[in-house]
């Protein structure tokens, strides 16, 4: 009997803990949102765009190029059976703009920048840098969290756009320059199929949602981690795992909302 009671008590306790964690994370998010960088802190945000955006650029560009090239190769071998290789352009462009651009960029971003953010914030906490900021009357949410938050939210959609654009060029490289699809039809059929507001803008919206999620998780995990080596490594792993799962789950929901019901 007492075992049963203990069981329910532990369920209750974990639930309460989870709710508290969500509450804390939301408070932190609002702290960061409303601490929109002051003029003085714009420089910090730019520096963080350099750290999370510019330093992720190479991996994003290389991945985009290869994914575009692979898609052209795969698509060509299938489409050529039906004599429809002219549709290679829209196939590459639509998959990149609607799905692969936002999703793969977000996954790479979570692994490359999200984990780094968690580790950095966690280590700042472990070495009492956050505490000492507070004691110097500088709000860490304003000084440390907000610039990173905004930098991430600004950078990721830009990275996703670059990813898609480079992927489309990579598809051109393989499809047109190598496999001999007509260049004119690659672009023109793409143009008549891809729509700015439906495909491009929706992809960007997805990317912004993913950016919010990844950066939020990364910063919260770092900010709330147990300030030890194990705590930080655990928080870093959790950032990557939780963000990846949430990205994929949200992608399904967003896709259903945007393209599922016509």
């Amino acid at each position: 009997m007492t075992q049963l009671a203990n069981y329910f008590a532990s369920i209750g306790r974990t639930t309460i803990e989870k709710v508290v964690a969500i509450g804390q994370a939301s408070l932190m998010l609002f702290g960061a949102l409303f601490a929109f960088p002051k003029v003085k802190n714009i420089g910090l945000t730019i520096h963080q765009i350099y750290v999370v955006g510019v330093q992720s650029l190479l991996i994003i560009m290389v991945s985009g190029l290869f994914i575009g090239m692979v898609m052209a190769l795969q698509g060509y071998t299938i489409l050529v059976n039906y004599g429809a290789e002219g549709s290679l352009g829209p196939m590459v462009a639509l998959s990149l703009l609607r799905e692969l651009g936002p999703v793969v960029t977000a996954l790479l971003f979570a692994g490359r920048a999200g984990s780094a953010l968690t580790a950095e914030i966690g280590l700042m906490k472990a070495t009492e840098q956050l505490s000492s900021l507070e004691m110097m009357a500088v709000d860490p949410l304003r000084r440390v969290i907000a610039p990173r938050f905004w930098a991430g939210v600004i950078s990721m959609p830009m990275l996703a756009i670059i990813f898609s654009a480079i992927g489309i060029l990579g598809g051109h490289l393989v499809g047109v320059d190598w496999l001999g699809v007509d260049s004119g039809s690659y672009w023109s059929i793409m143009q008549s199929t891809v729509e700015w507001d439906k495909d491009v803008v929706n992809g960007i919206i997805k990317s912004i949602v993913f950016a919010l999620v990844v950066v939020w998780i990364a910063l919260y995990k770092g900010y709330s981690c147990v300030p030890t080596s194990e705590g930080i490594s655990q928080a870093t792993t959790q950032t990557v795992v939780y963000s990846s799962l949430l990205i994929l789950g949200l992608d399904f929901i967003l896709t259903a909302l945007m393209f599922g019901i016509s």
Partner: peptide, 9 residues
Amino acid sequence: LFQSGALFT
């Protein structure tokens, strides 16, 4: 003055 110093690394 923090025990660990807590300089910004």
